[in-house]
Amino acid sequence: MSEEIVKMSEKGQLVVPSEIREQAGFKPSDRFLAVPVEDGVIFKKIELDIDSEYEELSQNIQKRFREEDVDEDVVEDAIEWARDQKA
């Protein structure tokens, strides 16, 4: 991989040169972790498993509802109330 100079836009965006994107296999939907270092920032590509995180959160909520004996009607009423508040 060769080094290239890039310029930051007024919106704070940096463009990864096409040769680097292709060699690294970066895609537009990829996510990166920005890590500040003494003289700048290092970007590390990361993988997020949103589906897995959602499933774990959903299971935790269901477990808590069972523990607190919250029934489905109460949840539906709360959702309806919250939607009315947005209107």
Rank of each mutant, 00 (worst) to 15 (best):
I50L: 00
K45T: 02
E55K: 06
E55N: 12
E55V: 00
D69W: 09
D51R: 03
D49V: 03
V74P: 04
Q62H: 13
L57E: 11
E47C: 09
D69L: 15
R64E: 14
K44Y: 05
K45N: 00
E56M: 01
D69T: 14
R66K: 14
D73M: 10
E72N: 15
K44C: 08
Q62R: 12
I42V: 11
D69G: 14
S52R: 03
S58W: 10
K63F: 13
N60G: 14
E56W: 07
I46C: 02
L57H: 08
I42R: 07
F65N: 10
E56C: 00
Q59L: 11
V41Y: 01
D73N: 13
R64L: 13
V74D: 13
E72F: 12
F43H: 00
F43E: 02
E53S: 02
S58V: 13
L48P: 03
E67S: 09
R64D: 13
S52Y: 01
D71G: 10
E53L: 05
D49R: 02
F43L: 04
R64I: 12
L48E: 02
E56G: 06
E67V: 02
N60M: 14
K63A: 12
N60S: 14
E68D: 15
F65Y: 10
I46S: 04
F65T: 04
D51E: 08
E55P: 01
F65Q: 03
Q62Y: 11
S58I: 06
K63N: 15
K44H: 09
V74C: 12
I46N: 01
F65K: 08
E47D: 15
D69A: 15
R64V: 11
R66A: 12
I42S: 10
E53Y: 00
V74Y: 11
Y54H: 08
D51V: 03
I61S: 07
E72Y: 13
K45F: 00
S52T: 00
S52F: 01
V41T: 05
V70D: 00
K63H: 08
K45W: 01
F65W: 06
V70P: 02
S52C: 08
D51G: 01
D71T: 07
E72T: 12
Y54N: 09
V41W: 00
Y54I: 06
S52K: 04
I42A: 06
R66M: 11
K45P: 02
L57C: 08
I61M: 06
V70K: 01
Y54Q: 09
E72L: 13
E55S: 02
N60D: 15
K63S: 14
K44D: 06
E68H: 10
I61R: 06
D71I: 08
S58N: 12
D71Q: 10
R64Y: 10
K45A: 01
E72V: 14
Q62C: 09
V74M: 04
I42T: 09
E68S: 11
V70L: 03
F65I: 05
I61C: 06
D71N: 13
S58K: 11
I61Q: 05
L48K: 05
V74K: 12
I46V: 05
V74F: 07
E56Y: 03
S52A: 03
D69H: 15
E72C: 08
D49T: 03
K44G: 07
R66D: 14
